[in-house]
Design a protein around this nucleic acid. Structure first.
Lengths: 395, 395
DNA sequence: GCTGCTTAGTTCACCGTTTGAAAGAAGGGT
DNA sequence: ACCCTTCTTTCAAACGGTGAACTAAGCAGC
């Protein structure tokens, strides 16, 4: 029932946000087009836009001739108004990237890690932040915010639970804030990858979608009504541990018959070995080898994997009725590149006709390096929501 | 990205809506309490409330002494300001009920049906509408709206697909509107039952919940962020056809291993028969008999059913991270009354620890007759959303 | 009954916001 | 030079929320 009062000032902020968001998300637009899209009056658009231009958030970007009359002046969010930094805390590295508001990478900094403590991660992220700011030549005061993606459950900017890192109840944002004046946002890695795909990849234009990530493990990001859905306590989207074979294979989560135990790369290779298959090397090369193998057990395992994955997709289709499912993750991409059509038809066998007919199943476009990009959108989201009002910090 | 402009009049409507909704949902409140809850100024609350009182939407309802000062005057939505009608189009009957705004039933009208055509349903609903209006003595102009619940997928007030009725693409609201001046809303039956539970039953206070309905078939209503989630095209919540045993029992939807094939009453009885159990009578008495049986096969079937249902619940818990799951439907209630604790512990075996710890699993409080009640909330929702502005009709 | 105290609700001048109408600006055509 | 079209800005008017001052309504103590 979260209804909020509105005051006369909220109105202006809200309309600034509407205009700024339109300009940012729907490319260069003229004031005229803005009046149509936002259904604000031309007077208000003019008023608000001139304010945004005066503040430097928006700039004019050429003009386009109209039908016989005065040409329209195009507006865009000034890419260099502010900059944003995204960080990916992975299992093997900490990557920090600095972007302008058009999301061009201006600097990158990687640091290898292995089973790091929170303090180490904080140190590496802050080092990376300093490094990318320094190499890009951007003033620290021009950095709008730092978004950090972590592989774990994140509640209120704190990492509540990150099993792969062995973390529990780590106030990461707070810890980072002690080392920088730049506003810090922390969020879940899968959601950030999903966010990147939704804004810049295969999810563009969709409002109800699922970004399904299949790697060694399996997860997903849910998008409902245009924004990320996190459930009651930020842990929604745990698609990998959905029971799909009641009483089936043991999963590392302790349960039986989880989807992850069948379609996660680890589970797939394990099933392959049990079927007599032989694989060597690290997980990824082994997985590729399996996919390229022409042996009988390999073919069976792959077909079964597609079947299980299809059932997992069908469960999503039935339950949340998305308009689009975006398949990603390194193993998901490897599978999808080869068997996307099979997957689609298999989903049709498990899903209800109507929602199946309404969903399109596509592959991720951005690859797994988009996590930092997704994280960097966090400050941008905030900028757009606040209508271009930037927190004034002393720096 | 559905962002909307705000005008100075939207503001007033929005704030009227905030106040009216608070009064309606959070019981009798004083102006003083409204200023706190809505964070509006006392001046605005006073202003808006006096307008609402002048229009008759809100009325004063006694007063409560405060700590030593002037007593607070309690406000409530006037139960007799307008009336609403809810209709349930079931498989065996059309029930129409008329409520005041406090949702007291003032009149009821039932009509038995069997495999009816759309035209017949329209006729019976309109007859029921006339009947309840007549017997209650309410003026037709005082009826705010008619909500109709149908067992099928409803998109934009039209029944898109109702398999049990054999309907496809039936513009039900339009057809009904030809026979009455009262505004008509049509929606899915499971969602309406969920809505009733969320407002008046076991779902009160929750913002992220699932109402799980187990009868002969299995369905659910999803509630996300305080309002019903319908997915991209209104068919979200098809929980019953989630694959839970890959390659398992044939389901009537055509798929294999759907949850419904294991925990729907039909599926349960079928499994019982296959295990050598003998049951007689109609489905419901047979189901009760099975539950009351002390035979070995019955015990096994029941334990298995709880297990499957738990896995289905766990999938919800993992995927959508609700704060509450409300179990209903006639079979669900029969099971839940006996085995709710077992069910809870079984869910714990299939779900991830964190989201499991955050969810509470409870039983429906309203029984299955609440469908019409839920449908009747549709016009109320609209009234609250519009801040008490009623469509002025000539009647 | 009067006074003082406390809390609830109302009135009013003021500020900020959107808006329609009118005016202005910028191009093309003749 | 003039008119036409289309985009953009200016301006007075209308409207809504707010803080501050004010009124209302109860209680307690004397």
């Amino acid at each position: 029932m979260e209804v909020r009062r509105t005051t006369v000032r909220d109105m202006r902020r809200s309309n600034r946000s509407v205009i700024l968001t339109s300009i940012y998300r729907e490319g260069p637009l003229s004031r005229q087009e803005l009046t149509v899209r936002t259904s604000l009056s031309a007077a208000s658009v003019s008023n608000l836009v001139s304010e945004l231009i005066a503040e430097g958030v928006v700039e004019e970007a050429g003009s386009v001739e109209s039908e016989g009359g005065r040409p329209r002046v195009l507006l865009r969010v000034s890419p260099t108004f502010r900059y944003v930094v995204g960080a990916e805390v992975g299992e093997t590295r900490v990557r920090v990237e600095l972007f302008d508001l058009a999301m061009n990478v201006l600097a990158r900094h990687d640091h290898p890690i292995s089973t790091p403590t929170p303090a180490e991660v904080v140190k590496h992220v802050l080092e990376g932040l300093s490094a990318v700011v320094a190499t890009s030549g951007v003033q620290p005061s021009e950095v709008l915010g730092l978004g950090v993606a972590v592989a774990g459950v994140v509640e209120d900017n704190a990492v509540v639970d990150a099993q792969t890192l062995g973390w529990e109840a780590v106030p990461l944002a707070e810890m980072l804030a002690e080392g920088t004046d730049i506003p810090v946002h922390v969020d879940n890695g899968a959601n950030m990858l999903g966010q990147a795909e939704m804004w810049f990849g295969a999810g563009r234009g969709a409002t109800d979608a699922v970004v399904a990530l299949v790697g060694s493990g399996v997860g997903s990001a849910l998008v409902a009504g245009g924004s990320s859905y996190r459930g009651a306590r930020s842990s929604a989207g745990e698609w990998g541990h959905m029971t799909i074979v009641y009483g089936g294979r043991q999963c590392r989560c302790g349960g039986l018959g989880c989807l992850e135990a069948y379609v996660g790369a680890e589970g797939v290779l394990d099933r392959y070995r049990q079927a007599g298959g032989v694989v060597e090397g690290d997980e990824e090369t082994a997985f590729v080898e399996l996919l390229n193998s022409s042996s009988e057990p390999a073919a069976t395992i792959i077909a079964d994997t597609i079947g299980y994955l299809a059932a997992g997709f069908a469960n999503l289709v039935n339950l949340v009725n998305p308009e689009r499912i975006v398949l990603g993750g390194w193993a998901g991409l490897l599978l999808g590149e080869r068997y996307l059509d099979d997957l689609r038809t298999e989903v049709g066998k498990h899903a209800l006709r109507r929602p199946y007919a309404q969903v399109s199943i596509v592959l991720c476009e951005l690859g797994r390096d988009a996590v930092a990009l997704g994280a960097a959108t966090l400050p941008v989201v905030r900028l757009l929501r606040d209508g271009g009002a930037v927190p004034n910090r002393t720096s």
